[in-house]
């Protein structure tokens, strides 16, 4: 296990009578991207705010790069980049000015801040828009400005709250590449999202937060092993006289009622990886022209949905 730059131990926080975070424990390791996954209102943003040194926990301990953000917020802030989920931009400032001001507030000299702004805006793809006032930026462009703002002081730890919302597919790919590169540079990245397909592609580790509590690792593992739908597509599905559902059911030796048709493809519920391997072998052995055999849901999504059902492992 590598060094953990973010350590959260049994943190709690409530607002009045509403308990937003009721017991969160996690570690985000250096050089890795850790996903914080949870449904709306599960306490992701509250946890992020506590990590960002904006909110004090009612109980529990937080260490960012070994420093307690409650006791020494200034030291933590110098090491920490935070991108909030709400897009707050100074409407009348240009993208470039926004980054320069932020750099200055992190103690950079005017010259350094200027240079950093040019480099960062190019990096997040806002180079051509650097003279545009922030209020005319689209949602996705503001999102990228927010990311650039979080990166201005080259933080060791990055907290990104829903960074991909509002981004087009091209920008998402770019974000993914950027995050991988930042992690490879040895930064610790904690990223929250409920768009799981997109998290799936970028995270190394995942922490699940349900109703204010992080889910224990063994429960996550158990949920990951539970059976989930797999998608099977046959090359001759349209031309062959025989319906694919019956052929697949026969090959797998399962009753046709186990299978579903979804947009010309067949969905079968399959458990662990070994079971999937056996099923694929059976289909090939039967001479079926299989061109697609894949889990219909990502691992994160599967785990997330399973945990969300609240079933005991």
């Amino acid at each position: 296990m590598g060094d953990a730059d973010v350590v959260v131990a049994d943190v709690r926080r409530s607002f009045g009578t509403v308990a937003a975070v009721r017991g969160a424990s996690l570690e985000a390791r250096t050089g890795r991207v850790t996903g914080l996954v949870g449904p709306n209102g599960s306490g992701k943003t509250t946890l992020m705010l506590m990590l960002a040194s904006l909110l004090a926990p009612d109980a529990g301990e937080i260490r960012v790069a070994g420093i307690d953000p409650v006791a020494e917020p200034q030291r933590v802030r110098a090491l920490l980049g935070w991108m909030p989920d709400s897009l707050g931009a100074w409407g009348s400032l240009t993208a470039r000015e926004t980054i320069v001001v932020t750099g200055r507030l992190y103690g950079m000299s005017r010259g350094d801040a200027q240079g950093r702004a040019s480099a960062l805006l190019d990096e997040v793809g806002l180079g051509p828009l650097q003279g545009a006032p922030a209020r005319i930026l689209s949602r996705g462009q503001k999102q990228r400005l927010g990311l650039a703002r979080a990166l201005v002081h080259e933080p060791r730890v990055l907290l990104l709250d829903e960074p991909a919302s509002g981004l087009d597919p091209q920008a998402r790919v770019e974000l993914r590449v950027l995050l991988r590169r930042l992690a490879a540079e040895g930064r610790t990245i904690l990223i929250s999202s409920h768009v799981l397909s997109e998290l799936e592609e970028v995270v190394d580790d995942a922490v699940f937060l349900v109703a204010g509590e992080t889910v224990a690792a063994d429960r996550v593992a158990a949920a990951g092993r539970r059976e989930r739908p797999w998608r099977i597509r046959l090359a001759d599905a349209a031309t062959s006289g025989e319906p694919p559902l019956a052929r697949i059911a026969a090959a797998l030796g399962r009753p046709a009622t186990d299978l579903e048709i979804d947009r010309g493809e067949i969905l079968v519920r399959i458990g662990a990886d070994e079971e999937a391997l056996r099923a694929l072998r059976a289909l090939i052995a039967d001479g079926l022209p299989v061109v697609e055999f894949a889990a219909a849901t990502g691992r994160l999504e599967h785990t997330f949905l399973d945990l969300g059902r609240g079933e005991a492992p």
Partner: peptide, 14 residues
Amino acid sequence: DAATLAPVQVTLAT
């Protein structure tokens, strides 16, 4: 309200 306070609060500005 405009969500521009917190981004300043996380900087070194006290």
